[in-house]
Amino acid sequence: MSQKLLTIIDYGMGNLHSVAKALEAVAPQFQIEITNDRARILEADHVVLPGVGAIRDCMAEIRRQQVDEVVAENLASGKPFLGICVGMQALMAHSDENQGIDCLNQFDGHVHRFPSGLIDSHGLPMKVPHMGWNHVTKTKDHPIWNSIESDSHFYFVHSYFVEPHENYSAGICHYGTDFAAMIYRDNLFATQFHPEKSAEAGLQLLKNFTQWNGTL
């Protein structure tokens, strides 16, 4: 049996090695490839769209390298697809970051900044970026949640969050406001947090993704 292929889409933004190393640790049956080669991405059994940094630069690179078309084709193919952090935000229609940026419009949702002036439970102003470990509450029984307890901690680092217009939330987090920590639709799953940096719970999530067939 030939080895399965998982591609991590490389559009020049962010630290893809962390994602690759975590996937290598949990999915030895996969060949993990970091690439922007269209053929390899379309050939893959599983695809990951990561991303860190500012959305304007991410979207500019996504368009310049025609990753937008590859993402659309991949989502249409029915193969399991995972967006992470800015990779999740990029799937939305529009982001308020960088004075407003149109995104991939693969998901009917908007990306907003955390409001300023929020107060935490100790009575102190809440910091932005939302950085650190926070609970994610399960809102949908999805294969990606296998062997992970609801309200587990995951590692977040972001100043903007996704508000999907449709109710496709698989997990919510609270930081001053409730926001979508996980969204799903058909063969698409996306997380605002970094599973590759979220210790056991994150590794389990990545393992679940590699074992998922893309259906609900």
Binding site: D120, S121, M126, H130, G132, W133, N134, H135, T137, D151, H153, F156, H174, Y175
Partner: peptide
């Protein structure tokens, strides 16, 4: 359930 403080 607030954001956890971190030990580094």
């Amino acid at each position: 359930m607030p954001l956890a403080k971190r030990i580094i």
